[in-house]
Amino acid sequence: MRPKPATPIPRFYGLDVPNGSAAAFTEFAKSVGTPPTVSSVFIKLDSPGITAALAAVPAGVTPMVSLEPWSQHSRWGDAQQSRYTLAALSSGTFDAQLRAVGSELAAAQRPLYLRFAHEMNGAWYPWAQAVNGNQAGQYIAAWRHVHDLIAPILGQRTSWVWAPNIFAGTPKGAPRLAGLYPGDDYVDLVGLSGYSHGDSVASTYCPTVAALQHLSTRPLLLAEIGVEGSEQASWLAQLGPFMAANPRIRGFVYYDTTPETTGATGYYRIDKNPASVQALRTSLSGLGIGGGAAVTGAAVTGAAAGQRC
């Protein structure tokens, strides 16, 4: 069984920028004043240039690799792909490609977060259990097969991240998370994906966070987040108190993206909005990220308090 961390994982924040642009990553870090320590990288089974993509991540920054078990020619929402079923993953159809990806990731010889087959409780990827002819129990079987296949290649530098979508964004009748979780023996961090289009931080995440805290003993991670709209700055100011009030949440990865740059579902970019930048600075400082004094959950009181989930 994977041991629990002897000490809590330090708070951190990460960033996704379009095409993994080093210039955009650096520009964001300068605007916020605190460099991210995690950078998002997306990889498919047949992605070329994995080594180059990892090399583009600045030294001292940990890649958050989202390993998607489908083709580079696939597109978000194209869930009905009979080639990329959960049964195919479990049966070994893609073992050679997975080993090759694992070997290339391992060759980088750097720490990695590996977010495999994320948002499996949705309906927009072929590995989601509710679509593509997939059956109950097959997601867990596929995850465990892939883990057992490439974890020995990746070694101890890699932390495995299991990350469903928040409940608010999934279709009615989505599979229960308990039937999708591979177990703490196979997972190092439990994450989530979730974007806000006008709701508070707490209302966006609490229902899912509460369920995850009952499901697993692992640390939690807001693995893919963003916010749009006129309340963007206010939302970002809430993020720090929210995380302080929920100490199992150790970090977040912000997607500084737009529909034009990535086909995102909203305009989440913040680095050109001074009020949003300042709000994020305040949240980071309150969490002790970037040299500020950390605020404990117990110390968060009053109107600005984060809600404990």
Rank of each mutant, 00 (worst) to 15 (best):
A128S: 15
Q109R: 12
A279M: 03
P175W: 13
V101P: 01
V61R: 06
S31Q: 13
A55P: 14
D199K: 01
T34V: 14
G266N: 02
V61A: 03
A130S: 12
K172Y: 14
A178P: 00
A96I: 08
Q129I: 07
W70S: 03
W235R: 02
T34R: 10
Y267K: 02
G292N: 04
A298S: 09
T217V: 11
V131Y: 13
T204F: 03
K30F: 14
E27V: 10
G122S: 08
F116I: 15
T170H: 07
P3C: 05
V65Y: 10
H147A: 07
L280G: 00
L86P: 12
R218A: 10
A275L: 08
N121M: 07
P259D: 06
G291Q: 11
Y255N: 03
A141M: 07
V57N: 11
T204C: 02
V201Y: 04
S193E: 08
G33I: 07
I153A: 05
A223V: 06
V161I: 02
W160N: 00
P219F: 15
T26G: 08
I225K: 00
A298D: 10
K272N: 10
A294S: 13
W76C: 07
K4P: 14
Y139C: 02
G137T: 01
V201N: 01
L287Y: 01
P241L: 05
D148P: 15
T217H: 15
G286M: 02
A293M: 13
Y205I: 00
V300T: 12
G240Q: 04
Y139R: 00
L45F: 08
A141I: 08
P259K: 08
R115K: 09
A151P: 04
D16T: 11
V227K: 01
A142D: 04
L189W: 07
A305E: 03
A117M: 14
V300L: 15
W143K: 04
S39M: 12
R308Y: 06
K4D: 14
